[in-house]
Amino acid sequence: MRDVCTDFEAELREFNGETGHVHLLVRYPPKVALSSLVGSLKGVSARRLRQEFPTHIHKYLRGKHFWSPSYFAASCAGAPLEIIKEYIENQKRPD
Rank of each mutant, 00 (worst) to 15 (best):
M1Q: 11
R2W: 09
D3Q: 14
T6D: 15
T6I: 14
T6Q: 15
D7H: 11
D7S: 10
D7R: 14
D7T: 05
F8R: 10
A10E: 13
A10L: 09
E11Q: 15
E11L: 13
L12W: 02
L12G: 01
L12I: 00
E14V: 00
E14M: 07
E14C: 05
E14F: 00
N16C: 09
N16I: 01
N16G: 09
G17T: 04
G17F: 03
E18W: 02
E18S: 07
E18D: 11
G20P: 03
H21S: 00
V22E: 05
V22C: 11
V22L: 15
H23Q: 11
H23M: 10
H23P: 06
H23L: 04
L24A: 14
L25H: 14
L25C: 07
V26H: 00
R27S: 12
Y28W: 03
Y28G: 01
P30V: 03
V32T: 13
V32L: 06
A33P: 09
L34R: 07
L34I: 12
S36L: 13
S36Y: 10
S36G: 10
L37V: 01
L37T: 00
G39W: 09
S40P: 04
L41E: 06
K42N: 10
K42E: 03
K42I: 00
G43W: 06
G43A: 02
S45F: 01
A46G: 02
A46S: 15
A46C: 08
R47H: 13
R48P: 07
R48L: 15
R48M: 14
L49T: 03
L49Y: 06
R50I: 00
Q51R: 15
Q51T: 08
E52Y: 07
T55M: 11
T55A: 12
H56D: 15
H56K: 15
I57Y: 08
I57V: 12
H58N: 13
H58M: 01
K59N: 11
K59H: 09
K59P: 05
Y60D: 08
Y60M: 06
Y60F: 14
L61R: 05
L61E: 08
L61H: 03
L61P: 11
R62H: 10
R62E: 06
R62M: 11
R62D: 06
G63L: 04
G63I: 03
G63K: 10
G63P: 09
K64D: 14
K64T: 13
K64C: 09
H65W: 06
H65Y: 04
F66T: 03
P69D: 14
S70F: 06
Y71R: 07
A74L: 08
A74R: 05
S75W: 07
S75G: 13
C76Y: 13
A77F: 01
A77W: 04
A77H: 12
A79V: 07
A79T: 03
P80C: 02
P80L: 00
P80V: 00
P80G: 02
L81V: 14
E82W: 04
E82G: 05
I83V: 10
I84M: 11
I84S: 08
I84K: 03
K85Y: 01
E86P: 07
E86H: 15
E86C: 11
E86Q: 15
Y87I: 07
I88A: 02
E89T: 04
N90G: 14
N90A: 10
N90S: 11
Q91A: 02
K92L: 12
K92T: 04
K92F: 09
R93G: 00
R93E: 10
R93P: 01
P94I: 00
